[in-house]
């Protein structure tokens, strides 16, 4: 019981923006180092260790950026949805900062997944794009991200904007299981899941390991950029407060 209270108390301590900024400053160099090492190892395995696929040939190397981008695009949205609950239910001071900071990063990963998927699809399927369930639901995810970024910028007061953004984020979260299970529910040109599925991965370990290392590298990059963007958003809000004080002459 006491342990639970202590853990909860520590979590709430982090809700203090100044403590959070100190934590970010302390972990940032380690995260940058970890991300660099993971990308160096991942890219080496992608180009020099992973074999060419017996059907797709060298084109399979696009998988090592396409699949982690798609995973992170969805992971980022799930993180935003959890933060939105934190913002709406507990009014956690950092929750809406987290949502706002994550949206452009998620949008970039979604764009990367769509674009690299298209570049992989043309030589393998003979077409850049098809309106199948997986591709269409992923395009909807990209549009959701752009809509959330637009909404964040429309409402000037961050506290008022946070509520609207949190609600829209939670409504859009219904798209995540649709993306995941679209290849099972509908007949799609996109292949079914081959890594995250019941019964274990159906992909050969020589292709799977480089993919997992690249997925870790993408995750480390996301955490690094998200914390940096959250730090920027906190400072932006402090500047807004200072400017409002200057405008009202309160601190003169």
């Amino acid at each position: 019981m006491t342990d639970t209270i202590t853990t909860t108390s520590r979590l709430w301590d982090l809700a203090n923006p100044t403590r959070f900024l100190r934590l970010v400053a302390a972990v940032q160099p380690w995260l940058i180092g970890l991300t660099t090492i993971l990308f160096a190892v991942g890219l080496y395995m992608t180009f020099f260790v992973a074999p060419a696929d017996y059907q797709q040939g060298e084109t399979v190397r696009i998988m090592y950026i396409h699949v982690p981008s798609a995973w992170l695009a969805m992971f980022c949205y799930v993180a935003m949805a959890i933060s939105s609950i934190g913002s709406l239910v507990w009014r956690h001071p950092l929750a809406d900062v987290s949502v706002k900071a994550a949206a452009p990063i998620g949008a970039t990963f979604t764009f990367l997944a769509l674009a690299t998927g298209s570049l992989w699809g043309k030589p393998m399927w003979g077409t850049w794009w098809v309106w199948d369930a997986r591709l269409t639901s992923f395009l909807i995810l990209f549009i959701m991200y752009l809509g959330l970024i637009a909404l964040q910028r429309t409402i000037e007061d961050p506290t008022r904007g946070a509520r609207a953004v949190a609600i829209l984020t939670l409504v859009g979260a219904i798209n995540i299981p649709i993306i995941k299970f679209s290849v099972d529910w509908w007949n799609t040109l996109h292949q079914p899941a081959s890594v995250l599925k019941i019964g274990g991965p159906s992909i050969h370990p020589s292709l799977l390991w480089p993919l997992l290392v690249m997925a870790l590298a993408f995750t480390a990059l996301f955490v690094t950029l998200h914390l940096a963007a959250m730090r920027n958003e906190i400072v932006r809000r402090r500047i807004r407060t200072l400017r409002m004080m200057a405008a009202s002459g309160e601190d003169r």
Partner: peptide, 8 residues
Amino acid sequence: FIVMAFAL
């Protein structure tokens, strides 16, 4: 296609 994907 591979070069374009990695460049992007």
